[in-house]
Amino acid sequence: MSDMDEMDDGSGVVKKFMFLNRKAPHGTVYALEGLEVVLITAAFDQDVSMVFTDDGVFQLMKGIDTKGIEVKDFSKTYRALEGYDIEKLYVDQASMDARGLTEDDLIVDVTVLSVDEMANLMAEQDVVISF
């Protein structure tokens, strides 16, 4: 991804992109490949929000160890997002509650939103891509 900084579609348009992560890691590929889209989008200087709801909050668990299932541990990448200027990370309070999780369980700093706040954030986006 060394050529990422040069990416630009030339239009100068900045849109609000929301990436909505609703699926747990590893059981399916969506979390990993979704993260790849987020990193590319950041290189286009767009207004990116990353949102974790439902089982998607499990993507952010501390202490993930994938050695035993012999797949890549991409959870460290969430900590690198800041370096890509992706600083808007949101999690859904109700999804956390339903899974017995608190912010302390998560590998990155996030903003916890109520369902109404989450709904309003989604409604104001230009593009919503859900994985």
Binding site: D9, S11, V37, I129
Partner: peptide, 18 residues
Amino acid sequence: SGLGQLVEMGIQYDRLVT
């Protein structure tokens, strides 16, 4: 081609439907 082509659709087009 690369994922940039997907991002461009979001930037340039009126709607992106998944």
